[in-house]
Amino acid sequence: MTTLLLQPCSSHGSGRAVLCSIDPLTQADHSSVVTIASSDAVLVVDGVFAFRPEINEHWDFRIRLEALPETSLRRGAERDQDWAGSEAEALHHERYLPAERLYVAEVGPLRLADVVIDNTVFSRPQIMQG
């Protein structure tokens, strides 16, 4: 991500960015598809573990979306039903939620965020901090 997207989109970058290298669902390689960003472009990056130390320095502004673990589990299982089938809930319960807990414990994304939004009620997001 750093060399294909973040460095090219930085203030001193070429603007020649790759928006997706390997599609996580299909495993298709898109690394040869280059998009040219204009000099006044704004890059918005969405990622579950976006404040990890190795990439956190690249962000000018950080927004953290929060939701109750039960809500996250339900939404993720519903979203991933098409490709994970009956394993979708177990996948989120046994893999994604523990990974999120570890990330929160090790990185502390709430302290790094400029704004924290409670997204538990999807139709009524609430600013919690910022």
Results as ranks from 00 to 15, higher is better:
97 L>W: 00
54 E>V: 10
92 H>C: 03
52 R>V: 06
126 Q>S: 15
59 W>E: 04
117 I>K: 06
19 L>C: 10
68 L>Y: 04
128 M>Y: 05
99 A>G: 00
65 L>T: 01
74 R>V: 02
6 L>A: 04
120 T>S: 11
52 R>S: 09
31 S>K: 12
56 N>E: 11
123 S>E: 14
63 I>V: 13
93 H>V: 06
65 L>R: 03
15 G>C: 03
124 R>L: 11
3 T>P: 03
69 P>E: 07
29 D>A: 12
65 L>F: 11
97 L>V: 01
65 L>I: 04
14 S>A: 12
106 E>G: 03
78 E>S: 14
78 E>M: 10
41 A>H: 10
34 V>E: 03
84 A>L: 13
113 A>S: 13
36 I>A: 06
44 V>C: 06
66 E>A: 12
127 I>F: 08
44 V>S: 01
86 S>G: 07
84 A>S: 03
108 G>Y: 09
17 A>F: 02
90 A>S: 12
93 H>K: 04
130 G>F: 06
129 Q>V: 10
87 E>V: 09
6 L>I: 07
81 Q>F: 14
91 L>C: 02
56 N>H: 15
39 S>W: 03
30 H>F: 15
19 L>V: 07
124 R>D: 15
38 S>V: 01
60 D>I: 08
12 H>F: 15
109 P>E: 03
101 R>E: 05
62 R>G: 00
12 H>K: 15
35 T>P: 00
28 A>K: 15
29 D>V: 13
44 V>W: 09
60 D>R: 15
127 I>Y: 09
19 L>T: 07
115 V>T: 08
91 L>Y: 03
24 P>G: 07
110 L>N: 14
22 I>K: 10
126 Q>C: 12
34 V>T: 05
56 N>D: 13
13 G>A: 09
37 A>T: 09
2 T>E: 11
100 E>A: 12
40 D>E: 05
39 S>Y: 02
81 Q>E: 08
51 F>C: 05
71 T>G: 09
56 N>Y: 14
41 A>L: 10
90 A>G: 08
48 V>S: 05
55 I>W: 00
108 G>I: 01
53 P>I: 06
102 L>K: 10
78 E>R: 03
115 V>Q: 11
71 T>Q: 11
58 H>S: 09
129 Q>P: 00
30 H>K: 12
82 D>F: 06
60 D>M: 10
17 A>I: 15
105 A>W: 09
117 I>C: 02
53 P>S: 09
87 E>S: 10
35 T>Y: 00
110 L>P: 04
106 E>P: 02
18 V>W: 02
119 N>F: 05
92 H>A: 03
22 I>N: 11
107 V>S: 09
46 D>A: 04
24 P>M: 03
35 T>H: 09
47 G>M: 07
73 L>R: 00
29 D>W: 14
32 S>M: 15
3 T>A: 14
108 G>M: 02
16 R>W: 08
82 D>Q: 12
17 A>E: 01
17 A>Q: 03
8 P>A: 13
79 R>E: 00
66 E>T: 02
52 R>D: 07
